[in-house]
Nucleic acid binder design. Structure first.
Length: 417
RNA sequence: GGAAGGGUGGCCGAGUGGCUUAAGGCGCUCGCUUGGAAAGCGUGUGUACCGAAAGGUACCGUGGGUUCAAAUCCCACCCCUUCCGCCA
């Protein structure tokens, strides 16, 4: 959610930012007019209430002295009715404003390049050497089947399409990756591990921006008001919903492994082979709560923390900066990390690291006190995959396969297997 | 699932519809005191919104209702605790 005061005083900045990312500007105009009405009404209503409060004191005084209060009483009856009907109107405006505000995406940071879609993203850097194969590398799913460590058929039998069963060494490798990533972030990068529920209330989804706009992306329980999380970003960011954090506690850095659940509505026919796009997958997520002035430095560090996983695994990757048109709803700036898939001869996203500035914090009410006696301010939140485990598994299969159709285990993972 | 009891400022905890501007305590702030501290005394101590300001308004789990007036009365819902039942 954007700052209403900022929209009021800088409508042109907001509209430019939104157009740059290809979003509608109508909601902003809509907000400005409803907000105007709301303020007029609120001022009037507050005055009427002030009168009512005065009268209340007088009535109490008269009753105390056993004097007649019927005149002022009947006056107040009318006033009270007026207040009630104006309050209904006010509530109506407030609901409208809330709905509008929740539908407006974040505006891109000044450093974000313009562009329409992923083709306009900028390569920031590249790391690692692509291995020269003296044979044709197999796609990860074929190798996985051959090694009997991935079972797509039985997964389809028990759960339908876009699921996979990890078997034997496959299950162990997935588990090893999770442990390796968590250990790295906890011991070397200074994050605190948390293990959270994978089901959350609608308020939590609203806090991070998945609701109300992207409900079709989520799995929802039929009989309970609960959603399966599409990313650990949701429960972890919401850990501090409606809190005022002590300044000394910042930056707060969490690392969490969770399963993630996505309906993938609208991506029929996309990445149907392999484990790239599943309804359920494992992810180690990094989440930070930081002071506003430091959030862009923290974004660079966060991205570096995620990159370190790939460096240690010796997997070639590149870092892309998303253009305005490719930014997610809540993000102000995002780096995607893409890992090399030799069988496809292309890089594929394995991590997305974003600064949300105060967008999520405002929705979720996450604040801190900049100084003693100062008013609370919204923190900046950031998160990034560190990394998507399934995609990392696939990248290892592809990059570490041998001519004989076997798999070499990356050095850093051996102690976990 | 059944029964009972509860949700009030950072915490504890009062609160017969109107001198409630939410008592009192703890904690914390600043000051007095002191060689320094403790104790003691005093002072301050929530959040949000509107407003240039003065000031005003709202908030006692949530949402409705009654009333001139609700933390207080009524209704519904949510959550927590304890006990019973069932179950890993």
């Amino acid at each position: 959610m954007l700052d209403p005061k900022f929209i009021r005083s800088n409508p042109d900045v907001v509209m430019t930012g939104l157009s740059n990312r290809g979003a509608e500007i109508a909601p902003v105009e809509n907000f400005l007019s409803v907000d105007e009405e709301w303020r007029k009404l609120t001022t009037r209503l507050d005055q009427l209430k002030a009168r009512r409060n005065d009268a209340s004191v007088k009535i109490a005084g008269l009753k105390q002295k056993k004097e007649d209060a019927s005149v002022i009483l009947s006056e107040m009856k009318g006033l009270s009715d007026e207040i009630k009907s104006l309050e209904d109107e006010q509530k109506n405006f407030e609901h409208q404003i809330e709905e509008i505000m929740l539908s407006i995406p974040n505006i891109p940071h000044v450093s974000v390049p313009n562009g329409k879609n992923c083709r306009d993203n900028l390569q920031v850097r590249m790391w690692g050497e692509k291995r020269k194969f003296d044979f044709t590398p197999l796609p990860h799913d074929e190798l996985g089947k051959k090694l009997d460590i991935l079972d797509f058929d039985r997964a389809a039998k028990i759960s339908g399409s876009r699921f996979v069963v990890y078997k034997g060494l496959g299950a162990a490798l997935e588990r090893a990756l999770i442990s390796f990533m968590l250990d790295l972030h906890i011991k070397e990068n200074g994050y605190t591990e948390v293990m959270t529920p994978a089901m959350v209330l609608p308020e939590s989804m609203r806090g991070t921006g998945q609701l109300p706009k992207f409900e079709e992306e989520l799995f929802r329980c039929r009989d309970d008001e609960l959603y399966l999380i599409p990313t650990a970003e949701v429960p972890v960011t919401n850990l501090h919903r409606e809190e005022i954090l002590p300044k000394e506690s910042l930056p707060i850095k969490y690392a969490a492994w969770t399963p993630c659940f996505r309906r993938e509505a609208g991506s029929y026919g996309k990445d149907v082979k392999g484990i790239i796009r599943q309804h359920q997958f494992n992810k180690v997520e990094l989440v930070k709560f930081v002071e506003p002035e430091k959030s862009y430095d923290e974004l660079e560090k966060l991205t570096a923390d995620a990159e370190l996983v790939l460096k240690k695994l010796n997997l070639p990757y590149r870092v892309m900066q998303l253009c305005a048109g490719d930014l997610g709803f809540s993000a102000a700036k995002t780096y995607d990390i893409e890992v090399w898939f030799p069988s496809e001869n292309q890089y594929r996203e394995i991590s997305s690291c974003s600064n949300f500035e105060s967008f999520q914090a405002r929705r979720a009410g996450i604040r801190y006190r900049p100084a003693k006696d100062a008013k609370p301010e919204f923190v900046h939140t950031l998160n990034g995959s560190g990394l998507a485990v399934g995609r990392c598994f696939a990248a290892i299969l592809e990059n570490y396969q041998t001519k004989e159709g076997k798999l070499e285990i990356p050095e850093v993972l051996r102690r976990y297997l």
